[in-house]
Lab assay of single mutants.
Amino acid sequence: KNAAQIVDEALNQGITLFVADNRLQYETSRDNIPEELLNEWKYYRQDLIDFLQQLD
């Protein structure tokens, strides 16, 4: 998997990933985040941060 796929997957589930103060953050109206997504975000944290910062 790559960062773009993970960001896309999150968006499809109503979750927006973004970077604030060099930390990976998310916004969602969901009550909870599936644990497998959280684990994936932790595992790919630096890739996601790098990818999202390139988009800014």
Rank of each mutant, 00 (worst) to 15 (best):
D31E: 12
E9G: 03
I33T: 03
L55M: 13
T28C: 03
I15N: 01
L24W: 01
I33K: 01
Q53R: 11
Q13Y: 13
V7R: 05
A10P: 01
F51V: 02
R23C: 10
R23Y: 11
N12H: 13
L24G: 01
Q5V: 07
A4D: 06
A10N: 02
E36S: 11
I49F: 07
S29R: 11
Y43R: 11
T16C: 09
L48P: 00
Q5W: 06
S29Q: 12
V7I: 13
I49C: 06
D56N: 13
T16K: 14
D21C: 09
D8G: 11
Y43F: 12
Q46R: 08
Q46G: 05
R45Y: 15
D21R: 03
Y44L: 03
W41P: 00
E35A: 10
I33P: 06
I15C: 03
D31P: 14
Y26A: 04
E35D: 11
K1Q: 04
P34Y: 04
I6D: 00
T16M: 11
Y43E: 13
D47G: 06
Q25F: 15
E40Q: 07
Q25H: 12
E27N: 12
E27A: 14
R23H: 11
S29A: 13
D56H: 13
I33M: 05
N2R: 10
W41E: 00
Y44P: 01
L55P: 11
N22F: 06
E27Q: 13
Q54S: 13
D56M: 11
Q25E: 10
A4Q: 14
N12M: 14
N12C: 07
N32Y: 14
F18D: 03
A10Y: 03
D56L: 11
L17K: 00
N12Q: 14
D56Y: 08
T16E: 07
D50A: 13
P34H: 05
I6C: 03
Y43T: 13
D8I: 15
L48Y: 01
D47I: 14
Q54G: 13
W41D: 00
L52V: 02
N39D: 12
I15F: 09
L24S: 00
V19F: 14
Y43P: 03
Q53G: 11
A20G: 07
D31M: 06
Y26R: 01
K42Q: 14
D56F: 07
D21E: 08
L48D: 00
P34R: 04
L37T: 06
A3F: 04
L48I: 13
W41M: 07
W41T: 02
S29C: 08
N39C: 06
T28K: 03
D21F: 07
A10F: 03
Y43L: 15
T16I: 15
N2A: 10
V19S: 04
D8W: 15
V7C: 04
Q53Y: 09
P34Q: 05
R30K: 10
K42F: 14
L38C: 06
L48G: 00
S29Y: 11
I6P: 00
D8H: 15
A3T: 05
E36W: 10
E9L: 04
L55I: 13
V7H: 04
I49Q: 03
K1E: 03
P34D: 07
Q54H: 11
A10K: 00
V19A: 06
N32G: 09
R45M: 15
Q25L: 13
N32L: 09
D47H: 09
Q5T: 11
G14Y: 05
Q25N: 08
T28A: 07
L24K: 00
L11K: 14
E40I: 08
A4T: 06
Y43M: 14
L24P: 01
N2Y: 08
D50T: 12
N32C: 09
G14P: 01
P34V: 05
Y26L: 04
N2W: 07
L11I: 09
L48Q: 00
A3Q: 02
V19E: 04
N2E: 10
A4C: 06
R30N: 12
N39P: 03
N22S: 09
Q5P: 01
N32A: 10
Q54K: 14
L17N: 01
D21P: 01
R45P: 00
Y43K: 11
G14Q: 05
L38H: 05
N22D: 12
A10I: 03
L38A: 06
G14W: 04
N39Q: 13
Q5F: 05
E35K: 09
Y43A: 14
D8F: 15
Y44F: 07
N39E: 13
A20I: 14
F18C: 07
D21V: 04
D56C: 08
K42W: 14
T28L: 03
Y44N: 06
D50S: 11
D21H: 07
A10E: 01
V7S: 02
E9K: 06
I33D: 01
R45W: 14
Q53F: 07
V7T: 04
Q25Y: 15
Y26Q: 02
R23P: 01
R45N: 14
I6Y: 02
Q5H: 06
L48E: 00
L11E: 06
Q13L: 15
I6F: 02
E27M: 13
T28R: 03
T16S: 08
V19Y: 14
Q13I: 10
R23F: 10
R45Q: 15
L37Q: 04
E36Y: 13
Q53C: 09
L48M: 03
R30F: 07
N12D: 12
G14C: 05
D31C: 08
N39V: 10
A20M: 12
I15A: 03
Q5K: 08
Q53D: 07
Q54V: 09
Q25S: 09
L17C: 03
R30V: 09
R30Q: 10
A10W: 04
L11V: 08
D47W: 05
E9P: 00
L11H: 11
Q25T: 07
V7Y: 14
G14H: 06
Q25W: 14
I49E: 04
T16P: 02
L37C: 02
R45K: 13
N12I: 12
A3K: 01
N39Y: 12
E40A: 06
D50G: 06
T28Y: 05
D21Q: 07
E36F: 09
G14A: 04
E36N: 11
T28H: 06
E9Y: 08
N39I: 12
D47M: 13
Q5L: 10
Q25R: 09
D47N: 08
N22E: 08
I15V: 10
I6L: 11
N2H: 12
S29E: 15
L55E: 11
F18W: 08
I33L: 10
L48R: 00
A4N: 06
N32P: 12
Q54T: 13
Y26W: 15
E40P: 01
Q46A: 12
R30S: 09
R30M: 12
V19T: 05
L48A: 00
E36I: 10
D50N: 14
Q13H: 13
Q13S: 07
Q46V: 10
T28D: 03
G14N: 06
L55A: 12
E35P: 12
N39S: 11
N39F: 10
Q5Y: 05
P34A: 06
E27D: 11
I15G: 00
I15R: 00
Y43Q: 13
I6K: 00
A10M: 03
D31K: 05
G14I: 03
F51W: 10
L17S: 02
L48T: 00
A3N: 02
L48H: 00
F18G: 05
S29W: 09
R23E: 15
E9F: 06
V19R: 00
I6N: 02
Y43G: 05
K1N: 03
A10R: 00
L38K: 07
F18I: 09
L24R: 00
T16N: 10
I33V: 10
R30I: 09
Q53I: 14
D31G: 09
I33G: 01
Y26C: 05
E27W: 15
N22R: 05
N2F: 09
R30L: 13
L52S: 01
N32Q: 12
A3I: 11
D50W: 09
Q53P: 04
E27F: 13
E36H: 11
Q25C: 15
K1V: 05
E35M: 11
L38D: 03
T16L: 13
